[in-house]
Write a protein that binds this DNA or RNA. Structure first.
Lengths: 333, 333
DNA sequence: CAACGTTGTTTCAACGTTGTAAACAGGGGC
DNA sequence: GCCCCTGTTTACAACGTTGAAACAACGTTG
């Protein structure tokens, strides 16, 4: 067991509280005492017991990051930034995986498996705005990557509608006319899928082009591959596809290439997320790059305000930046 | 703030300790009392305060998983399994990123940023066996993915030497004679790189073939791409490459394809890790698939034994299974 | 019926920390 | 010599929890 304040106090011949004062940088400590205490501190390699400190202060210094799945590259990359942003506040991050399942998301909202955490950053998939509003748990909450307008909790996200419109416009700008959307979800009332679909539709409508929509159940490569195969089976296969995320796009790319089609010559392909895989695939993948560091920083920031701020200020919605990154899958070499 | 045992006790008209007994499933509590208490518990939505419990018990129910980087797919996939395995013990997992930097790994070994955790699973990159042996911190430690024989801490890993030999044998078995290794590290005394290199050498020596070794600094796609470019610049470019992990292989594949070479016709390519990307790349990637779920389960298991077991049993080394997965990058369609 | 074990419950102290308030020392000013 | 002020240090209590020990009520046993 590590040394406690008491051990230091004994060694330095002062009271426990004086040691505590030194540790916390309290101003009114005489230089002589401070020196004595610091000597003792380093001699016994003192490390504060956070359990005790937190018990006393009512904080744990731990937040939870609840994601659908850590092994989806977008979330892994995002997690890195969230952990880094939290580290600056000396917070630790525990990761919870919901698998996008409703009952797991619910359980997160009710408390992270009975542990107390100071706050939760949730990337919701299944849960709806109404259920969020009805939540009773008082733990600070920030939603990430979804944007339910006028929702019941703080939000960070990019403008999904506009981003989707931008990508679609880019594809149309290449002269493609049979532009399909890949990644809609059948029963999704909330989440990003409807927003991205809306953006696609706006762009298509603006140019008077017919819409083609392929649905998936999960945002995974295999689903992208299967949905692409389905699109190819249609009477009028697309000459461009906007996939609602990069994983879907990479799955779709695999189907296209192994069907002997060329990307982008036969079918142009674009995704959204800017995961690293897309920068090294052949061809490299055109995509929308959300500013992940900014998303993470804002999420942690909002959480900090929730945790430290006055009890209940109205929920905030903050947008993060993104940019369209054009690569070989739409431009060619 | 949440309700405490005292609040429950007051509401149920019993002592605090009785409530504690109910919460902890202590046997000798009368059904009537238990019912009363449970009613109160759920009415106030009681959640134990872990800081307090941990202060009292010296346990936190939280372990740390320290990885080089969460956004490397192998580690992201592994994390998922570690989190799942820990969840079965009702442990939470905080994730720390070392970026493979020595001083960060050191800091992890000295304690996870002053927070107390019950144990640490570390995937070491930079730190050496000697330094591990000299560690003073008493927190339970399990090393993951490296195998320092007779090292000072518990280990889990696949047999890297044998796995590397298997892959190399596979490439040689295709009839290739200029088989290169990509992924050695210049100054690595420990870690997996020397082991994989050793396996490669064994196989090459067994067939009397000349060795070609390309080094990298980090196991990332860009480094694989660059190292492959360097190999192509040599007098006798390879006709097969064993990359020490899949990311390197995917980077190398990008270089090969954009140089107009065909995989596997001109250059066969194999990796190690079996990350999902390799199952959807074009061509799909031949690789060694470590049993990640088993690795994770064993790591958590070893940690549990360390935490709960007698003070200092000798360190254990446990091997996990793997299998060679042959795909298009060595076989073709 | 007295001694004893069992079951159910409570009291007490302690884990390591810090906020509050109070004690203490030294230095002017009167 | 007394008082007040400032700077420094301390004692105490409390955060929420649980192990140890004590206690009360009961049924069993010799």
């Amino acid at each position: 067991m590590g040394a406690s304040l008491r051990d230091i106090a004994r060694l330095a011949g002062v009271s426990v509280k004086t040691v505590s004062n030194v540790v916390n940088g309290y101003a009114h400590v005489s230089p002589a005492t401070r020196a004595k205490v610091e000597e003792a501190l380093s001699r016994l390699d003192y490390r504060p017991n956070l359990s005790a400190r937190n018990l006393r202060q009512g904080r744990t210094g731990v937040i939870a990051l609840a994601l659908p799945e850590l092994d989806a590259p977008y979330f892994a990359e995002l997690s890195r930034f969230v952990i880094d942003a939290a580290a600056e506040l000396r917070w630790l991050v525990v990761i919870e995986q919901t698998d996008g399942r409703l009952e797991r998301e619910r359980r997160i909202l009710d408390g992270v498996r009975d542990h107390r955490v100071d706050g939760v950053i949730l990337s919701p998939i299944a849960i709806g705005a109404d259920e969020l509003a009805a939540r009773t748990d008082a733990t600070a909450l920030v939603l990430l990557g979804e944007r339910i307008h006028d929702g019941p909790a703080d939000h960070v996200a990019i403008d999904n509608v506009r981003a989707a419109r931008d990508v679609t416009e880019h594809l149309i700008g290449l002269g493609r006319t049979r532009v399909a959307a890949l990644g809609a979800e059948d029963n999704a009332a909330s989440g990003t899928a409807p927003l991205r679909l809306a953006g696609y539709r706006e762009a298509m409508a603006a140019h008077g082009l017919p819409e083609t929509v392929a649905t998936v159940e999960r945002y995974r490569r295999d689903q992208g591959a299967a949905a692409m195969a389905a699109l190819l089976g249609r009477a009028e296969p697309p000459d461009a596809v906007f996939c609602f995320n990069d994983l879907l796009a990479l799955g779709a790319m695999r189907t296209l290439l192994s069907s002997g089609l060329r990307v982008p010559e036969d079918v142009a392909l674009a995704g959204l997320d800017d995961i690293e895989d897309g920068r090294f695939s052949t061809p490299t993948l055109t995509t929308v790059a959300p500013d992940k560091a900014e998303l993470a920083r804002i999420a942690v920031d909002l959480l900090k305000q929730r945790i430290e701020g006055p009890a209940d200020h109205p929920p905030k919605e903050v947008g993060a930046g993104y940019r369209l990154v054009v690569r070989e899958s739409t431009l060619g070499r």
